[in-house]
Amino acid sequence: MEKTVKDDCIFCKIANGEISSNTIYEDEHFRVIMDINPASKGHCIILPKTHAANLYELPDDWCKEVMPVAKKCAAVLKDVLDCEGVNVLQNNGALAGQTVFHLHVHLIPRYQDDTVEIQWKPTQRTDTEELAKKIREAFAD
């Protein structure tokens, strides 16, 4: 897996050990750190050691590796923190809530009385069949 680093990216610096962090897990390709602005007790973020601003830019071989890291870390968080669940969250673009433009995956432990709000209001759409057809056709291109 090829690695690139962006000199002015704070997450590149953290992921590659240039800036200290509360690291909970590290391997050749990823560093998992405690979030400095946690949504809940134990909130961590997975940082690839290669720079990609978002999911669209992350090379496929790195994409294949990030979910096993998320699974491993989420299981440890659940065991150690005795949380009732873990949200695995990844935002792409400012409108989606991304604030640091280096791909990262949030692991947010959930507790019965926490104040974390990750929600949307379900809507009823009448054009889902048309949308599905248009999206399917894009895969064929």
Rank of each mutant, 00 (worst) to 15 (best):
E137C: 00
P122F: 03
D60N: 10
L55S: 08
A96R: 12
C12F: 10
L77G: 10
L58F: 06
D82H: 15
I10M: 08
T126R: 00
G93C: 01
L103F: 15
Y111K: 11
M67T: 02
C9D: 09
D61W: 02
V86N: 11
K72F: 00
A138E: 14
T115E: 15
A52L: 08
F30I: 07
K6Q: 10
L95V: 14
C12T: 10
T126V: 04
V105A: 06
D141G: 07
V76S: 13
Q98F: 03
H106I: 00
K13Y: 03
Q124F: 10
A53R: 10
Y111W: 12
Q90F: 01
C73G: 01
T123H: 14
Q98M: 06
P48M: 05
D127R: 01
T4L: 03
T126E: 15
D35N: 15
E65A: 07
Y25D: 12
W62V: 02
W62N: 06
L95H: 12
I36R: 10
K64G: 08
S21L: 01
Q90A: 02
R31D: 06
V88T: 14
C9F: 00
N54F: 02
G17T: 02
I118L: 15
Q112D: 13
D79K: 07
M67D: 02
D82Q: 15
N91K: 11
K134E: 09
R31W: 01
L107Y: 12
C73I: 15
C44W: 04
D61I: 03
E26M: 05
N22P: 00
V116F: 13
P68C: 01
S20R: 05
E129G: 03
R31L: 04
L89C: 11
